[in-house]
């Protein structure tokens, strides 16, 4: 994997370390990162994005404790071998939770009933 695969938005309300973990989670869940694949070093990521290496370490540490990554001795971080490329449907749906919550809030604010929103969503997903 290359450090450029990550996108960092420093001025987003979400802390940078969370942005990294979130993207790793999506990349692994989506199968773009295969089990056992090596991650770029902390220095590479920090250097490429001009961010504090401690932030990257913190993100890798969190991902490790969540079981997304594992530390290979002498090689650095890799996608955990136990992690199958495809997770259960529920796990993958959980990844979408924040966006769904946001959508629901917007719908309520616009005083839209559930029916047309779901219809539209089904159509979008169908295509």
């Amino acid at each position: 994997m290359d450090a450029s695969l990550l996108t960092i938005q420093p001025n987003a309300p979400e802390p940078i370390y969370r942005q990294i973990v979130e993207q790793l989670r999506r990349l692994i869940a989506g199968g773009q990162l295969a089990a056992g694949e090596l991650l770029p070093s902390v220095r590479e990521v920090a250097g490429f994005h001009a961010i504090n290496p401690m932030t990257v370490s913190r993100a890798y540490g969190l991902a490790e404790s969540e079981g997304l990554l594992e530390r290979l001795r002498g090689k650095g971080m890799a996608v955990a071998a136990t992690r199958r490329a495809s997770q259960s449907e529920n796990q993958r749906l959980a990844l979408l939770e924040p966006q769904l919550l946001e959508l629901a809030r917007h719908a309520r604010e616009l005083e839209l009933p559930a029916e047309p929103v779901l219809r539209r969503l089904t159509k979008l997903l169908g295509d």
Binding site: V42, R43, A46, G47, A50, I51, N52, P53, M54
Partner: peptide, 14 residues
């Protein structure tokens, strides 16, 4: 500016 930030970040980290 980006180069400077990189230099600062890496020095702090390493």
């Amino acid at each position: 500016r980006r180069e400077l930030l990189r230099e600062v970040a890496l020095r702090a980290g390493e």
